[in-house]
Simulated scan of single mutants.
Amino acid sequence: MVIALIRHGQTDWNHAALMQGRTDIPLNETGRAQARAVVEQLAESDWDLIVSSPLGRARETAAIIADGLGLELGPPVEGLTEQDFGDAEGVRVVDVHERWPDRNIPGAEPDAAVGERGLAALVQLAADHPGRNVLAVAHGTLIRRTLAVISGHDAHDYPRLDNLATSHVQLDGDTWAVLTVGGAPFDEVRIDLDARAAQLTAELAS
């Protein structure tokens, strides 16, 4: 089974570089165009179903792709919802880093919980749709943290995912593996991930 995790299309808050999290900001026209444009790329593989986070920007992205590919649009999957960023939602990303450099953001969902929640959502999708290849529209932080749990790397070392970037994971037996990250083969991405992990280990040991 292969699941493609797709980041939703652009919103006005994306364009303005504001933290969104659970704030339900709709797609803008650029985001809708991005969703239509990715259909041709996704049509190169066989997909059985598309699902999404319940947030409107993910749901509309999924609906556009479903229409373009002639796929069934499944019900929203709560576990694919973006991380709750608490007091940081609506704040410029650059200001978030300055105000909460340790990411101790009041009201935010703990970082460590996000990837585990995302992986649990994948496990449930696999149980609900055995043997089917599924497109899942979700959110940048949720996707990165889920991939990090699967690969065993630090989510902060994963590259930023653009709108409509697609990352593939595969279930073989009971084992999940990351195949691609934002379209790049995981074997290539892992080189940078391992290098960053080694650098941090060296810094801590010095």
Rank of each mutant, 00 (worst) to 15 (best):
D154R: 15
G152S: 07
N163H: 05
A177D: 07
A155E: 12
G182P: 10
I143S: 12
T146S: 05
D172L: 10
S151V: 03
A197N: 04
D194V: 13
H156L: 08
P159H: 03
T141N: 12
T175S: 13
N163Q: 07
L164V: 13
L147Q: 07
D194K: 02
D187Y: 01
G173A: 13
A165H: 10
D162C: 01
N163R: 06
R144T: 10
R190A: 14
R196T: 00
V149N: 03
H153S: 11
I143C: 05
A165M: 04
G182E: 06
H153G: 04
R196K: 15
D157W: 11
A155L: 01
L147R: 07
V169Q: 05
L171Y: 07
D154F: 07
D194W: 00
D172T: 15
L161Y: 03
F186Q: 05
L193S: 00
D174C: 04
V189Y: 01
P185I: 01
L142C: 11
A184D: 13
R144C: 09
D154Y: 03
L142I: 06
G140E: 03
L142T: 15
D162I: 00
L171G: 08
I191G: 00
T146P: 02
T146F: 01
A177F: 09
T180N: 08
Q170L: 13
H153D: 10
R144M: 11
P185Q: 02
T141C: 12
R145C: 02
D192K: 11
W176S: 11
T141D: 13
V149K: 09
A148S: 14
R145E: 14
T180A: 10
H156P: 00
L171D: 04
G183T: 09
H168K: 11
G182T: 09
R160F: 09
R145Y: 00
R190Q: 15
L147E: 06
